[in-house]
Design a protein around this nucleic acid. Sequence first.
DNA 1: ATGGCCAGAATCCTATAGGAAAATCAAATA
DNA 2: TATTTGATTTTCCTATAGGATTCTGGCCAT
Lengths: 235, 235
Amino acid sequence: MLEGQYLDSLGAAAGAPRPTEVHQHLRGLIMSGAIPPGRRINIDDAARQLSVSPTPVREALAGLESEGLVVKVPLRGYRTTELLTRDELIELYELRMLLEPAAAASAARRREEGDLAAFDRELETLSGHPAALPAGALSAHDERLHGLVFDTAGNRLISRTYARTHCHLHIFRLSYAGSYGHGTLDEHVEIVRAIRDADPERAAETMREHLDRSLGRVLDTVAGGRAERTEPGRR
Amino acid sequence: MLEGQYLDSLGAAAGAPRPTEVHQHLRGLIMSGAIPPGRRINIDDAARQLSVSPTPVREALAGLESEGLVVKVPLRGYRTTELLTRDELIELYELRMLLEPAAAASAARRREEGDLAAFDRELETLSGHPAALPAGALSAHDERLHGLVFDTAGNRLISRTYARTHCHLHIFRLSYAGSYGHGTLDEHVEIVRAIRDADPERAAETMREHLDRSLGRVLDTVAGGRAERTEPGRR
DNA sequence: ATGGCCAGAATCCTATAGGAAAATCAAATA
DNA sequence: TATTTGATTTTCCTATAGGATTCTGGCCAT
């Protein structure tokens, strides 16, 4: 069964349920961890909780399947995607290692005043006490900052490619709270500094180091940390 | 009128009776050019032609929208995606320039006997007369060969990322028949040779040159060629 | 006691119907 | 003649119902 109380922000708008809202809402539930990885999604229950009929829910799930957030077993229903395996994490970081240093270098070449202000604002949101942050805040910050790098780099296709694959890492980090070390914020500061200094080579290099250390932290988590992330729960 | 069998690189296991067939069939119609870019898709008509009800058609379109092959305007229906603009083509080649040289280098390191045989088979399919080939054969060959490079490289995530974006270039090439020059096949041979020689650096370099020249050919087409690719047809 | 088998229940999947919004076309007026 | 307005038609969008399939629990045989 789905856990109740999914109606939080989008729930009871007046009368007309927009089709895209169902998609966005379900995506938010998955991305926030409200629906954990590997859990079955009952179409009828989801429709009731969203106050719509099963048809738009099915339509939204079909879209989420192409995004890789859910999988459909033809006559057995939909399930959220399983958590990334160790090998898949390594593959994901190989992709990041190709895209992000180049994006950082491009950002260092193209950055304008507005971009720098956006970076400053993002860094300030977490400056101070990284220990007292609520779970998921660091993951959200990380996603936003790397997104800013791509936005500044200016290639929208690459930016979308990044977003499409990065959501899986986001879910992984939410499941294993603790995939971040103290170095994360400092490394972000270094990357932003290189971009501000309009130094493409150093931006790429700091990004490479950041990714390398980040992969190390993630692999430590998946290897040394607890193997179970949620209750065994029926799949 | 249907029975798809358009092979999917991800290889969804057979036996899925109905739902995926509609998706695959529509994708085939778009990828083959049977439904030109920018054309409206009437859900009821498509359902009649496929001998199914509008519901699974709608579900398939929702999935295709997440793949970027169609766009949905909330109360106006679905349309196939417009042809890539010049800027989008450049962005696509920037992405390829990041992914494919690295993939070629990795393929040169990891290639085994079976991979080399697959490359040979692919090259032989077109060896001989590149002028007498039916329209689209070159485009299909190009897509298969670059796909082989990614398969040999061994990172499935990057391979899927490539496939997801490359389909747009495929459609572009079908619309502008003539985006290929005589050099294409020769350049492919050079790339395969470097992979066979287990020379990662040369594989990456030949791939870079190939992409550079390919972009030049494509831009020549979009700039000098005819500006209209189909009848104005209602959008 | 364990494995196979069967019936009930739950779930998914498709089809059809009705309501709403937008596009289209005809007609009337300035 | 050009423009605006109104009604018609097309199309999308959602809800509901029925058929097909799979899962679950209990029963029987070995």
